[in-house]
Every structure is written in structure tokens, then in C-alpha cells.
Amino acid sequence: MSALKPAASERAFDAVNIVLLIVLSLLFLIPFLAVIATSFISAEESMRRGAFVLIPEKLDLSAYDMLLNRGMIIYNAYKVTLFRVTAGTFLNLLLTATLAYGLARRTLPGRNVLVLIIFLTMIFHGGLIPNYMLIDKLGLKDTLWVLIFPGLISAWNLFIMRNFFLTLPEELEESAIIDGASPPLILWKIVVPLSMPAFATIGLFYAVHHWNDWFSASIYINDQSKMPIQVVMRNILLSGLLQDETQVELVRDPPPAATLKSAVIVISTLPIMFVYPFIQKYFVRGMMVGSIKG
């Protein structure tokens, strides 16, 4: 009797939970499906049916044709984005992890001062002009490195990473030291394998940031062939929006149609969304604790 009761309530809990999650998922999914559907309808159909279409009457690829087939604007922008996501994320992780690991040493002399120095950068910024001058002096302007170096370490991610290292059990390292392992060996053989969930998470944050960021490129890069995909996307989406009327005065043509805008959204967001499922395999419960025991 008493064994059955919790089981029944558990099943009820599961059912409610699953229904709730399905409803939430629909809430997240539908707008996105509408954007995808809109990108596949003809300009004429979008004029007729409005901007929120879930099922197209007829598939029309002209928006994609226009964006992907003529010229190489989008392809080139993809290449730039791909470069910054891969090279950028790698360097981000490398520097963030080393700094976070060093600062996570509880016995490190002066670590509070160093943490304070970093913390202050989260709050005080010099502003755009001095940054621009610095980038100029360093010779980074109009190079692809400007998309990577100025944001090598995010203090936010650094603190999360350090927090993670702080939660690693100290006994682990202590026993390794007793076994005569050197600090680099401990880092490489024990800490790094244990930190895969943290690396995956922080790496994902960096990668998505690199994918989404448009500001640094739009300010520091003049050469159109070095623009990442997000700058191209924003220019299309925001064209005609948020301008004062004197600017709109003599516009030759109306702003781009909903179909084109939707296609731009799809092209510029879909690829990065497929990264997450690959990273999920690092989020397996007990992975860390299990390896401690092993």
C-alpha cells in the first residue's frame, strides 16, 4: 500500500511536468516556425496574408535565392563569422580557464587584489573613444583579430569558471600531491577532465556571443568583405526603422519585404542553434563525481 502511494503521486507529477513543458515548448517554437514559414512564401503571398503565416500556400525560395545566390555577401560574412567563432572561442576558453584556475587557488598570495582588479573592469569602462584609439594604435582596426582580442576574457564568464573550480573538491588535488604529481600534471590529468561540463558551458557562451555580436565589427571594421553575418543581418532588419523623418524623406523604395527579413533571420540564426545539442553530451549527471570515485 504505502509503496504504491508515492508511485501514483510521482506519475501525476511526471504527467503535469511533461504537459507543462510541452506547452512551454510550443510557446517558444511557434513564433520561430512562423518566421521560417514566412521566409518561404512569395512576396505577393506575404503582402496578401500578413506577416504571421504558419503554413505557406506555396513554397517560394526567391528570398533565399536572392540572399545566397547572387554575389557572395552572405557567404563571405559566414566565413568571417565561422572564423571568429572557432578561433575566438578557443582562445577565450584557453585564457579564461587558465586565469580562472590560477585565481581559484585558495592559497595564492594576492589573489583578492587580482580579483578586485578584474571586478572593477566589469563596472568601469573607458568608453568608445579611448577604446577606438587603442585598437587603432595596436594596429587591429579593419583586421579580423579585432573581433577576437578586445573580448578575450569576459569577466562574467571568468567568475563563473572560477566559481566552478572553487567547487572542485580539494581532497582530489591533495591526494594527487601526496602521490607526487606536479601542478601542471594535476591540471592536465585531473582538473581538465573534470571540468568538461564547465568548459562546454562557458565555451557555448563564448561561441554564441561571437555568433551574435555585431557591435565590434560595425565600429572597428570598414572593409565590407570582413563584416560578419550579424552586421549584414542588422542592416537588413533595421533598414528604415528608427530613423528620423528627414532621412526617410526621399527613400527610393520601400524597406525590404517581410519575406526577405525572415529569410535573413533564418540564415543568420539556424546554424548556431545546432551547436547546443552537440554540447549536451557533456551535461551528464554524475560524470564529475563518478570520475572522482574512479
Partner: peptide, 22 residues
């Protein structure tokens, strides 16, 4: 550990502290 810290700290000094005079 200091070796590990140096590159990261250099980053903060160059890209955050130098422009702070702004």
C-alpha cells in the same frame, strides 16, 4: 599559477585599464 594568470591579467590591463582614462 602565476604563469597561468599572467596572460589573462595582461589582457585586462591592456584592453580595460589603458582606455579607462576616457
Amino acid at each position: 599559477y602565476y604563469y597561468l594568470i599572467i596572460p589573462g591579467m595582461l589582457y585586462f590591463i591592456i584592453f580595460d585599464y589603458i582606455p579607462m582614462f576616457g
